[in-house]
Amino acid sequence: MGVVAEALVWLTDAANWSGTAGIPNRVYEHVRISVFTVMCAAALAIPVGMAIGHTGKGRFLVVTLSNVGRAIPSFAILGLALPIAIKLNLGLGFWPTFIALFALAIPPILTNTYIGVAGVDRDLVEAARGMGMGNRQILRRLEMRLAAPVVMVGLRTASVEVVATATLAAIVAGGGLGRYIIDGFAVRDDARILGGAILVAILAIFTELFMGGVERLARPRTSS
């Protein structure tokens, strides 16, 4: 029997669909930490990116963060998050993974928010000011809306990276779909490794397509 066939048997085995180690629970753990982290990262990076884009102060921070962020491997970020979590007495599993994914999600969201807001046509801002809008109104009613599609690209990049890297959480004793791959390696169970790999790939591609759909919704409609 081929390995793929074995993996399909593993994927369709009812025993793998219930309990803590079951597929539904692992998918839930994977999605839970991914959504939680991206939301926390967005809650920090979007306001900061908007402030920097609006005022033009702190541009250096954005450029440095996005360059450094690209050069640090996500595996290294996960590795560094482990001793930090231990130092802070946060234990294994969830928190080291959260720290790593959070650090990973910040640069794309921050950079895109900054680019989106800074890229708003200055004439439009002047016009809004001429219409009597204050800073806060300009930010809320003009810059935020025009920047939304670019911000969404950043959220999509961050989400796909976070879902992919959450797989590595299993190395620091976290949950999620990576468990099947890491545990499968440990006991040399090819069916489980392959089954886990297939599930992770499906989840990543689903995330990409889903966020792509949300991104299209955020694009401003050209109305007359």
Binding site: D190, A197, E208
Partner: peptide, 18 residues
């Protein structure tokens, strides 16, 4: 793009079977 989207650990795991 499809290859690029597959998480690295999943791709390496998949290949080890072969």
């Amino acid at each position: 793009g499809f290859l690029y989207t597959i998480p690295s650990l999943a791709l390496f795991a998949f290949l080890t079977a072969y």
